[in-house]
Amino acid sequence: MKSVLDIKNLKVGFHSDEGFVQAVDGLDLQIGEGKTLGLVGESGCGKSVTSLSVMRLLPEKARISGEIGFLGEDLLQKDQKELERIRGDKISMIFQDPMTSLNPVLTIGEQIEEVIRYHQGGTKQEIRDRTLELMDLVKIPDSERRIREYPHQMSGGIRQRIMIAMAIACDPELLIADEPTTALDVTVQAQILALIRELQEKLNTAVLMISHDLGVISQVADDVAVMYAGQVVEWTTTEELFESPKHPYTQGLIRTIPRMDEQQGELEEIPGMVPELSQEFKGCRFYDRCPKAMKACKKADINLLDVEQSKVRCLLYSE
């Protein structure tokens, strides 16, 4: 299968007050055409940094290496001009907080229209028609009126729909959604997820869906990559992940999902804290929190191992 996104050995670091922070450390990921990859992990594990690397929107001080293959070209080799042409057209992004992600002084219409105007062009009327069409596509009621309104006049759910409309305006090959529902309340969350799923199928767009919530991922993703401390620790199909989670961290994460159906005592959580990324790691990064840790885990760095259909970074599965 042809892959839309093919990240190889991505490393991203920042110089900060606490020293050098290796936020992403040797990440490999692939997303096939029209597929949805869920990227999941606790806060601070490097999910947003990964997505911003693909967009090439990291601050200038970020040290970035490796390869980000997009439709056969390496995004890390592109200059600003080329990137401007790709962003919003071939790759687009939806952010976490719809309340702050829209420009407060521009009308909704203008914010959607400018994407079309800049990437595809057209007459005023064509652009306006297309904008109204997009607003209907993301199910914004009363689009004729809304198009002239400003972000502060709308609820979070509507704003996130506007973000989605902007993102799909040019029919992108890849859509990155970084915690698109985290800031919304539960009923709205479900609607937005359903909308993304629906559009993804309709437009056959590849999606990188980022979340700290496996519940969200399970609803939309074909494949899942679990990240821990800047690395992928497990990467497999969504089905496989929930049926037979391999990495002890994944197993822990799955136990933390609240379930309605079964009896569940106290909501479990993974004991311990996420490690500081400014340290030098040796061996498994989950070692301190792992219930199945062995002496050998600390000895040397562990590679992603092929276990059945999964890739797992854990010594339990090495022969």
Partner: peptide
């Protein structure tokens, strides 16, 4: 944030 959005739009 909206500046990041604007850049993400190209």
């Amino acid at each position: 944030d909206y500046m990041k959005t604007a850049r993400a739009k190209g």
